[in-house]
Design a protein around this nucleic acid. Structure first.
Lengths: 125, 125
DNA sequence: AAATTAAGATTACATTTGTAATCAAAAGCG
DNA sequence: CGCTTTTGATTACAAATGTAATCTTAATTT
């Protein structure tokens, strides 16, 4: 699959949240949240279709777009390549950075603890 | 500061590990590890200097390059923007992905536990 | 000293990306 | 039924990126 650019990801994120969506909905969302021009959003939708990241079905004259790739899979693959590139493959230092900046919320901590518990149980079993 | 591209980051990573380095050392490292052509590496070094990510001092006819930006700072900023773009700002789901794929090492877990302990202590104090 | 080599500087070039504008066709309005 | 608006398709275009090749100058080799 072709790479998905940052601008394209903005579009994809909207659609992952509320698929299926008409172009106008995506336009509206990105216009308000990021001041993105309608034409720009249309271009990005087109590119995502070409990259087979989005599919659509006609709803009258307009299209309804839906994702063709799974968000979790995408997130995982991107995370791996990011951690590989930036942290030489080590996850903990990434989290440590957030911790140092005090950007971990109680929810984050709770989730991390749960993860660790699961992991340890997995190990002992 | 201008953005640093992926290819450029490969160069920067080498230099962060062993600064200062001559171009030939970087070339050698990247040629073997990524099959990157000498000319390509030279171009990247140049671009990094132009972007003020690298500085250098002459050592005879050649240059010795050293980083002008701090790796930790870079990592933190990139992490934040990555997590923002891909995970809507939440760190835990990223770690969860690694956990599910069983890509957390005992060291990762140990570090994460230490982070959490620190965080909790910070909170109670 | 002439020829070869090595280092950095400059130039090249296709592709991707961000950001739109223009075009064509269909749908709705007056 | 023409005119306007809307929607997707096509075209545009500069900047960034990956990947080198060429040029210039200084050093090294023979």
């Amino acid at each position: 699959m072709k790479e998905i650019s940052n601008a394209e990801l903005s579009v994809l994120n909207i659609i992952w949240q509320n698929a299926p969506l008409g172009a106008s909905d995506v336009v509206e969302a990105l216009a308000s949240s990021q001041g993105m021009h309608e034409k720009t959003v249309k271009t990005l939708l087109n590119r995502l279709v070409k990259k087979q990241a989005l599919g659509y079905e006609k709803e009258g004259r307009a299209y309804l777009y839906y994702p063709l790739i799974d968000q979790s899979e995408y997130q995982l693959k991107e995370s791996q390549s990011f951690v590989e590139r930036v942290f030489a493959g080590k996850v903990a230092p990434l989290v440590a950075g957030f911790a140092k900046q005090k950007q971990l919320s109680p929810e984050d901590i709770a989730e991390l603890k749960a993860l660790i518990d699961d992991w340890e149980e997995e190990q002992s079993s």
